[in-house]
Design a protein around this nucleic acid. Structure first.
Lengths: 153, 153
DNA sequence: CCGTATCCATTGTGATACTG
DNA sequence: CAGTATCACAATGGATACGG
């Protein structure tokens, strides 16, 4: 159930007609939100998933429960402070559980929640697209960059 | 809608099928990359899609070709400098074409390329997930935040 | 109309060292 | 082991004004 909070976009319909002729889907892209709205669903998720380590952490945890240090190694040596930030954010959003075992030395397990596991699907769609098309992006990038330098010669 | 998730990643259920069809997807999460590697496919795409305006711009352009000012209104009044940055990045990556019409006053059209259009699918998977589950995230967030303030009382 | 130029606040990220 | 504390820095993002 969506009820996107729409502040500016729908009001400022000084565009010709954005949703009329192309009303092929019930909910148009234009309704999907305003980046200024902190509760815009897409923004909430993109702000979390788009950061540097979240996708990697979720990927690592999708395979198995991991401890802090294991996680740190799994994602390639992130600084502990940053990993802690990432994990706290994931925990706060209900995507990861943090379990402290009363032991010496301490043992803390991180595990995906059901919600976190469900996020694997759309992330996989993105990583899948990325692996398929990153070549085209990189090629376009090189073409563009070399065109710039060629233009200045 | 969306109908994404051809289960490319989720079928990494243990070791079973290394079948050819998912030769690419058969790679485990651990192989998907290192965030330090600037050419890691997921990073390249996430760095682009995860920024503040790209998803909205692609969404707007998915419905129709738009001019600079139309785009600006469509995504909710982004500052021109930032919109230019976003569009230049998209153009450089081959996701958007920029067409200048020799007219007075000038007219510049922005349009998705085939590559850009193909990106709509995984983005839709993400926005779809976001709209479905943002409530759970926000609820978890509130629970977590109120637990913190309660704990300090 | 379609941008660029300038300045600035905020945030994200990281290295390093230290502690219960 | 599992973090925290501190400092530093680069990258975003935004407001405003101006130019071709």
């Amino acid at each position: 159930m969506v009820t996107v909070a729409r502040t500016s976009l729908s009001d400022r319909s000084d565009l010709t007609d954005l949703s009329d002729s192309s009303a092929r889907s019930a909910r148009s892209w234009a309704d999907r939100g305003d980046a200024f709205d902190p509760d815009c669903p897409t923004r909430v998720v993109l702000d979390r998933v788009g950061d540097k380590w979240t996708a990697l952490v979720i990927g690592a945890l999708s395979e198995q429960v991991l401890r802090f240090t294991e996680l740190r190694a799994a994602v390639g040596g992130v600084a502990p402070k940053v990993l802690t930030q990432t994990l706290r954010a994931l925990e706060r959003d209900g995507l990861v559980t943090r379990t402290v075992h009363a032991q010496v030395p301490p043992r803390v397990d991180y595990e995906l929640t059901d919600l976190g596991r469900s996020l694997i699907v759309p992330i996989a769609a993105l990583t899948d697209w990325a692996e398929t098309h990153v070549g085209e992006i990189l090629a376009a990038r090189e073409r563009s960059d070399s065109a710039v330098s060629a233009g200045s010669m």
